[in-house]
């Protein structure tokens, strides 16, 4: 009897994976409910199943994109959607500066450009909740946030200079099979400005005191909050037309059942 349940379960699982064909260059992320570290009105959020790009979008991928969609070329992009730093590490519309590598993550892209890129591939930018959900995994666990080493590693990256010049895929992938969520560049999210962080971070601390109680419930350490704080701080400082040296993106895709 026990055996039979096991079989049924295995078959069910098999069918589940078969019933869904994975997009190339993406992996399937099983949704769940979780408590984000900081910055929401309600403590528990739900993330539905989705697919996520394995790597951040690279310079060479973005080059293909601008060849296909001239309105996003460096010289053509509308000032409404980009600032003057847009692709400023590119020599011209189709060439990188000699110091840049094709397999480095593309940076100096605005939110509008990133969003257009994903949409042109039939994808979209991840939400903050989706991004944070996948990013809380390390190599062996889906939620590594309480591990001191995980947090220390992230904090160390926040301090390391010029990581945007590294190639993608050099650091270990996390348990989902996703690379470089931490360690290379910040990444745009669809709703980056939905969490209102004012310039006055200390006031934010007061405002969201409930959240700290919430995170305390999942045994948060100070380190854990600090790493998340820094991500929310950078998101809070952005405007959609900004193009920044250390800011790239990747896309996700909804699952159509």
């Amino acid at each position: 009897m026990k055996h039979r349940t096991f079989y049924v379960l295995t078959i069910a699982l098999l069918f589940h994976t078969l019933g869904f064909s994975q997009t190339e260059g993406m992996v399937f992320i099983k949704g769940n409910r979780y408590i984000p570290l900081y910055g929401r009105d309600s403590t528990v959020v739900e993330v539905k199943d989705f697919e996520m790009d394995i790597f951040p979008v690279t310079n060479s991928q973005f080059l293909e994109f601008v060849k296909q969609y001239p309105k996003w070329q460096k010289s053509n992009a509308l000032k409404l959607f980009t600032d003057k730093s847009y692709l400023s590490n590119w020599e011209n519309d189709f060439e990188l500066k000699s110091s840049e590598k094709p397999d480095s993550p593309v940076t100096y892209v605005s939110w509008f450009a990133a969003k257009a890129y994903c949409e042109c591939q039939g994808k979209r930018l991840p939400t903050v909740d989706e991004w944070e959900y996948v990013a809380m995994a390390d190599e062996n666990t889906r939620d590594a946030r309480i591990k001191p080493d995980y947090n220390k590693q992230i904090l160390a990256w926040y301090e390391a200079p010029r990581t945007n010049e590294n190639s993608i895929g050099q650091l270990p992938k996390n348990i989902w099979g996703i690379y470089d969520l931490h360690g290379l560049v910040w990444e745009w999210t669809l709703d980056f400005n939905s969490v209102l962080i004012t310039g006055e971070s200390r006031k934010d601390v007061d405002k969201d005191s409930n959240l700290f109680c919430g995170s305390a419930a999942v045994n948060a350490t100070d380190l854990m909050n600090y790493a998340a704080f820094m991500r929310y701080a950078i998101r809070g400082s952005l405007k959609a037309k900004y193009s920044i040296k250390n800011l790239g993106f990747r896309c996700v895709k909804d699952i159509n059942k």
Binding site: G199, E200, R202, I234, S237, L238
Partner: peptide, 13 residues
């Protein structure tokens, strides 16, 4: 407010 912190929050670049 904030001794200027509120109005000076600035992204890289």
């Amino acid at each position: 407010p904030g001794g200027g912190a509120e109005s000076s929050f600035v992204a890289p670049g």
